[in-house]
Structures are given as structure tokens and as C-alpha cells.
Amino acid sequence: MYEGAVQELIDELGRLPGVGPKSAQRIAFHLLAADQADVQRLVDALHHVKERVSFCQTCGNIAESEQCRICTDPKRDASVLCVVEEPKDVVAIERTREFRGRYHVLGGSINPIEGVGPEDLRIRELLGRLSDGSILEVILATDPNLEGEATATYLARTISPLGVSVSRLASGLPVGGDLEYADEVTLGRAFEGRRRIESG
């Protein structure tokens, strides 16, 4: 145990995801030794993030005003919607520059152990967006794990009756990888999701 303020900082840092007690201690001593100006920049950044950043009222993504940049961008295709679990998934898909539609961020996945049901996700908002008929296609891009699959299945069942086309992101072999190194679950999925190659 350290004296008051240092221990307090270590405890707070230790609460962050992915930071254990050892790392928390290391960061705390790094900050203690750092320039006042460097620390101030960190303090400001933390302060601003809580002050300025909120969530887009339309899609649930991170935004600095009522609506996020993607929802207000007129160049984006308003007829296609990609459903993801978290804002960081939006960033990941944006990096590909392949998708020109808009997003809907659920805020998690169905997970009864954690007490998360459909009513705790932004599904009502999603159905609201689908109700005016302007969105023609929904792409489900939840994580390829059991909870993400369950969420995708649930959404597909809920959305399909509305007459909107629903698809699920393919899961399969990594590009640039070797077939022999793929684990059997991935390889099995890749077989299920195989595509016909058009000849000529």
C-alpha cells in the first residue's frame, strides 16, 4: 500500500478494463514522474470526453452533437443499415471504406448471464427507424460469438416480417491465411457460407 493520493490513483486505474494491479502501479508512477503539462493534457482529454461527447440520437454511435457525422452525411446511402454491437465496431467497418450505408449501434449483445435482454439494447429504436420503409436492407454485423449469433438470430426473426432484406456478415477464412492453420469451427463456417463462382 502507498500513501493516500498515489494509492487512490492506482485503485482508480486498476478499475479500467485490461489494467491489472501491476500495470496500474506502473502507470501511476509514470504519471508521477511526468511533466505537469503532459498530465494536464490527459486531464483535459478525460474532462472533454465526458463533457462534449454524447451518443447519436439516431444510431447510438459516438457524436459531438445530437447526431453523428455519419447520420448527417448526405452522401451516405440511407437505404442500407449496418447493425453493430459497439461504437468501436463502426470504426472498424469504416476503416474498410467498403460500406457506404449508415449504422445502428445496439450497445451490446443479448447476454442473459449479464442480465442483458433485447429490451436493454437499442432494438426499439432500430424498429422505429425501419418503420417508414426508407431502409431496404439491414446487414447484421454483431460479433461472431455465441451471444452475437443469438442477437443476430433474434434480430433476423424480428426484422424479416417487416419486409426488409436481412443479411448476416459472412464468417470464414482470414485473407492471406493458410487453410491448414484454420481451426475447425472457422473452417466449418467457411464451408457453410461458401459461394458459387460464376463461370464466364
Binding site: I110, P112, G117, P118, L146, E149, T153, Y154, R157
Partner: peptide, 28 residues
């Protein structure tokens, strides 16, 4: 484990409250 947590959460509540997600876990 997920399905058990869901079924347990529904004790004393109407079955319809979990029916839609239950069928998803049933499928898996």
C-alpha cells in the same frame, strides 16, 4: 449457462416475457 440464466430470470414472470429470446437459445 446463458439459457439457464434466462430461464431463471423468468421465474414468476409470464413466459411470454422471454419467449422470443428463448427460442433463439433453443435453436443454438
Amino acid at each position: 449457462r446463458q439459457r439457464n440464466a434466462l430461464v431463471k430470470s423468468a421465474i414468476g414472470r409470464p413466459r411470454s416475457s422471454i419467449a422470443s429470446t428463448l427460442s433463439v437459445w433453443n435453436e443454438q
